[in-house]
């Protein structure tokens, strides 16, 4: 099994006629993802290599039964695009857009929480989600992931997500689902959400978690691991050498005062029983060790 998205998932790409949307939308389709529609206001009636384009998400849903959206539009339009998908009752919205103002993200999240509880937002500023062999929504290169499980991956960073998939593939370890939750201050989906899903998924036997400095989501994940996660968790945190007060590329990766340090996160995860490792390669090795000892 997989979490959040599988071979049945029908994807509408918001921004399919744009450069990025077209590139990744077609790449996702080539991977095997059911890309059923595109949306670009004013371009309804056109098609992108056979994928029909609609003016609104609601129309796309009516015409194609889309049940997931891939949002690939510029930062100033992305908040409205996400909310449009939510109003069309799309249950999963994956937003890869980088550079959305924090206040817009906070407003979108609050609106989803109060008015559209049935919609899960993944991202913004995330690489997307891949259930290897089944579906790939976003910008991950599908070929670096080995299908079949038994590992679930959740990560804040794009390239570290790829690194994680790659390390496991090198060791012949497959993945049920790999979720990139994104590096922004207000992600729609957190570590905790993914850990709960992986815990409930019968095909996921172990979880790899890649965090980074900033915020307190890794600490919350640690609390959940201690209380409710029975499956082994291998955890890696990037940013041990990051100085306080500087954003390390991601808007969300910043140590403010004594809060959000890699050290504090590693200690919390370790105390919760997670296997904390020092670098991505070690994460792969540790996972192989755990799976071999079952």
């Amino acid at each position: 099994m997989s979490i959040f998205a599988n071979e049945e998932t029908r994807v509408v790409v918001q921004g399919l006629t744009g450069g990025q949307g077209r590139f990744h939308g077609l790449r996702n389709r080539a991977y095997g993802t059911r890309v059923v529609a595109g949306v670009t206001p004013g371009k309804g009636g056109q098609d992108v290599e056979g994928i029909p384009v609609y003016d609104t998400v609601a129309e796309a849903v009516r015409a194609t039964g889309a049940n997931a959206s891939f949002v690939s539009v510029p930062p100033r339009f992305a908040p409205d695009a996400i909310l449009e998908a939510a109003r069309a009752e799309i249950p999963l919205v994956v937003c890869i857009t980088e550079g959305i103002p924090a206040h817009d993200e906070a407003r979108v999240f609050a609106t989803l929480r109060s008015q559209h509880p049935g919609t899960r937002l993944l991202g913004p500023n995330c690489p997307g989600i891949i259930s290897p062999g089944k579906t790939n929504i976003g910008i991950t290169a599908g070929e670096i992931a080995l299908p079949g499980g038994p590992v679930g991956i959740v990560s804040r960073s794009g390239t570290l997500t790829y690194q994680a998939l790659y390390e496991l593939k090198q060791l012949g370890i497959g993945v049920t689902t790999c979720v990139g939750i994104g590096g922004d201050p207000v992600p729609g989906t957190n570590f905790v959400d993914c850990l709960l899903e992986f815990e409930a998924d019968p095909e996921t036997e172990a979880i790899a978690m890649f965090g980074e400095i900033g915020g307190t989501e890794e600490e919350k994940a640690a609390e959940l691991i201690a209380e409710a996660v029975t499956k082994p968790v291998v955890a890696y945190i990037a940013g041990v050498t990051a100085p306080p007060g500087k954003k390390m590329g991601h808007a969300g990766a910043i140590i403010s005062g004594s809060k959000g340090t890699a050290q504090a996160k590693m200690e919390a995860l370790s105390a919760a029983g997670a296997h904390v490792v020092q670098n991505p390669t070690e994460a792969g090795r540790k996972m192989a060790e755990i799976l071999a000892s079952r």
Partner: peptide, 17 residues
Amino acid sequence: IANGAGLAMSTCDVVNQ
């Protein structure tokens, strides 16, 4: 020099390690 914020941070860490 690395591609991606997470990998760039991780690279700094590994050099330190």
